[in-house]
């Protein structure tokens, strides 16, 4: 196993990337990680990246 992983730079890179992705996927599944969105809480304007269409509609309504 160790010999195979350290056989050349490509096998080592693939192993490291696979471990990295596996760690992220497992952690993501366990914690149910979701992307955080930028939400600005101020009286002048509101921006929620997830609700960008709604933001555009509201702007059109204002116009």
């Amino acid at each position: 196993m160790k010999k195979t992983i350290l056989k050349n730079r490509y096998t080592l890179l693939l192993t490291i990337l696979a471990s990295y992705m596996l760690a992220l996927v497992v952690e993501g599944k366990l914690t149910g990680r979701e992307a955080r969105v930028l939400e600005f809480d101020n009286p002048f304007f509101e921006l929620n990246i997830r609700d960008f269409e709604g933001f555009r509609d509201r702007r059109n309504d204002d116009d």
Partner: peptide, 19 residues
């Protein structure tokens, strides 16, 4: 990741740490 696992945890992870 999308192709092998059918998930997008990697992109989610990067996005969740970008603030």
């Amino acid at each position: 990741e999308d192709f092998i696992f059918g998930t997008q945890f990697l992109a989610n992870w990067v996005e969740s740490r970008a603030n």
